[in-house]
Design a protein around this nucleic acid. Structure first.
Length: 176
DNA sequence: GTAAGGATTGGC
DNA sequence: CCAATCCTTACT
């Protein structure tokens, strides 16, 4: 059935409701699916992500506590956190962990596309996706599979303001 | 109210 | 190298 990929073969919210350090290695390499109004679907592997972990992480948007912008990160894992940066680029993040434990994984690349802004643009992401439930959404979800993905790690990009300790965390994962 | 700056990108 | 572009945040 054509509908199977939309309703049956997706990763559920529980997958995201663990510590972001455990979720990220399982997320890299998975197939991200995006269904458009015209019936077309983009299905590509997640190739690059970054970890943002809690209020103590000075690079995380939650480092100064809950605000109107970041409140989505305080929800249970499995929803999207979307925000605009530099007045022009939408960023897509997967919220992880339990409620009141703000964590997220920034999507930086999918097959053939490098860069968080470019990736979100390709997927036609905007503010309306903020809070989108990956367990239920008809327009975006992640496909199940048990393949182990190999990846390399490196420091996160664009967070020099976070101080030496946090800026040097190898919390960027790149699919081999 | 006001001002500073950003999890980036593309063009010169 | 640097401007674009506007939302969010932290102040006065």
């Amino acid at each position: 059935m054509r509908n199977l990929s939309i309703t049956g073969n997706r990763i559920n919210s529980a997958f995201f409701q663990e510590d972001v350090l455990d979720v990220a290695p399982k997320l890299i390499g998975k197939y991200l699916c995006r269904a458009f109004d015209d019936g077309s679907i983009i299905k590509k592997r997640i190739t690059e992500i970054e970890i943002y972990r809690g209020e103590e992480d000075l690079a995380c948007h939650a480092s100064k506590g809950k605000t109107a912008r970041n409140e989505i990160m305080y929800k249970n894992g499995g929803v999207l956190y979307i925000y605009l940066i530099y007045g022009m680029h939408w960023m897509l993040n997967f919220v992880t962990g339990d409620a009141n434990n703000p964590q997220a994984i920034l999507l930086r690349g999918i097959d053939g596309i490098v860069g968080p802004g470019r990736t979100a643009k390709k997927l036609k992401i905007d503010k309306s996706f903020n809070g989108e439930d990956l367990g239920k959404s008809k327009r975006i979800w992640i496909e199940k599979n048990d393949l182990k993905a190999e990846y390399t790690t490196d420091v996160r990009i664009g967070i020099d303001y976070a101080g030496d300790y946090w800026k040097n965390k190898a919390w960027r994962l790149v699919l081999k």
